[in-house]
Amino acid sequence: MSNPLTTLLQNRDWLLADGATGTNLFNMGLSAGDPPELWNVDHPDRIRALYAGAVDAGSDLFLTNTFGGNASRLKLHNAQSRVFELNKLGAELGREVADKVTDRKVIVAGSVGPTGDIMAPMGTLTFDLAVEMFHEQAEGLKAGGADVAWVETISAFEEFAAASKAFALADLPWCGTMSFDTAGRTMMGITTKDMVRKTLKLENPPVAFGANCGVGASDLLRTVQGLATEHPQHPLIAKGNAGIPKYHDGHIHYDGTPELMADYACLARDSGAKIIGGCCGTTPEHLKAMRTALEERPRTDAPSHEAIAAALGGFSSASDGTDGNAPKARSTKRRRRPAA
């Protein structure tokens, strides 16, 4: 399928994605528990500023403010009837910012987060209902001008597959990331081997896939290396957190410096990632350092786990999720939070 992102990937060694959404919106005044998607209507100037911050820092791609824009999550705020509207606005604001850039192509990626419900049989979310919710969101993103859909922070592969089908129904190319936050596995037990094997069997495979969020940058790079080992030819995504979250003066802060994220970006590239960005805690200042490092530092061989730990800090677990020593899948429901 021909699309702007595929064209960029064919002509570039790497692409810089954006950073955090939730973290940066909290810095702009978003209150914990408030749905950030409503800011597409109530504070469009701040959403434009969010997008522009990433673009001005050098991002080739940014995600829209629509992570929780599905009916299940919006129902918590009595806004389930506004799915199409809020997603369309989120993409339209992104299109405004991206189209002002004259020296390079900037991709508007329509962010799609998990529904917040647990897939059957452990939960009540059926595959067809997940497809319906993702499809409604995708149609809004497409109408607003998103170049691709981007499903992120997924833990159950059934939900990942439902998003794939929904994007096919909307005729919208897509990318996808899962969050490997449980000793190298997703919360629902998916390993890197599982993800590659199952993703490549989808009737509508993604343009690129990979990992986001999780625990720390070290763990995420170990995951990326696992994905690259399974299928090095497919474009991979790395969007790691800016260090480790720490609670200070009533707020969560991430301890990753711009210098650390610059190291992370180059290690991610050398580990096999083609699209490299940040997740929770990543600001435009981090992105600027990442862009400079990617442009100036030469590519090297894939770093060892020891080299990753020395540069970014140790791993949160000894297991990479594929040795049978990871905890079993959890069935608890995750609390709603915006993509940080």
Rank of each mutant, 00 (worst) to 15 (best):
residue 2 S to C: 01
residue 7 T to K: 14
residue 9 L to M: 08
residue 11 N to M: 02
residue 12 R to S: 09
residue 17 A to C: 11
residue 22 G to N: 09
residue 23 T to D: 13
residue 23 T to A: 14
residue 26 F to V: 11
residue 26 F to S: 13
residue 28 M to T: 03
residue 31 S to K: 15
residue 31 S to F: 02
residue 36 P to F: 09
residue 40 N to P: 08
residue 43 H to S: 04
residue 45 D to E: 15
residue 48 R to F: 02
residue 55 V to N: 08
residue 62 F to G: 11
residue 63 L to G: 13
residue 66 T to M: 12
residue 73 R to W: 13
residue 78 N to C: 05
residue 86 L to W: 09
residue 91 A to H: 07
residue 96 E to F: 11
residue 98 A to M: 12
residue 106 V to G: 00
residue 111 S to G: 09
residue 116 G to H: 12
residue 116 G to I: 09
residue 119 M to V: 07
residue 121 P to G: 03
residue 122 M to R: 12
residue 126 T to N: 06
residue 132 E to R: 15
residue 135 H to L: 13
residue 137 Q to G: 04
residue 139 E to F: 10
residue 140 G to S: 05
residue 140 G to Y: 01
residue 154 I to T: 06
residue 155 S to A: 15
residue 156 A to T: 05
residue 157 F to D: 11
residue 158 E to Y: 01
residue 160 F to P: 06
residue 166 A to N: 04
residue 166 A to F: 04
residue 179 S to C: 14
residue 195 M to E: 11
residue 195 M to D: 06
residue 196 V to N: 06
residue 201 K to A: 14
residue 203 E to H: 06
residue 204 N to H: 14
residue 204 N to M: 00
residue 205 P to N: 00
residue 206 P to C: 10
residue 213 C to R: 00
residue 216 G to V: 00
residue 218 S to F: 03
residue 221 L to E: 04
residue 222 R to M: 11
residue 222 R to E: 08
residue 224 V to I: 15
residue 229 T to A: 13
residue 231 H to C: 13
residue 236 L to V: 01
residue 244 I to H: 00
residue 249 D to S: 02
residue 261 M to R: 02
residue 264 Y to K: 03
residue 266 C to Y: 09
residue 267 L to E: 10
residue 269 R to K: 07
residue 272 G to N: 04
residue 275 I to R: 01
residue 278 G to M: 13
residue 279 C to D: 10
residue 282 T to I: 12
residue 283 T to F: 02
residue 286 H to F: 08
residue 287 L to H: 09
residue 292 T to R: 15
residue 292 T to W: 14
residue 300 T to L: 14
residue 301 D to L: 11
residue 301 D to G: 15
residue 305 H to L: 14
residue 307 A to Y: 02
residue 307 A to V: 05
residue 310 A to Y: 01
residue 312 L to W: 05
residue 316 S to E: 06
residue 316 S to Q: 11
residue 319 S to C: 09
residue 320 D to E: 06
residue 322 T to V: 12
residue 323 D to P: 09
residue 325 N to A: 12
residue 328 K to Q: 14
residue 329 A to Q: 03
residue 330 R to Q: 06
residue 331 S to L: 03
residue 333 K to W: 01
residue 337 R to S: 01
residue 339 A to R: 00
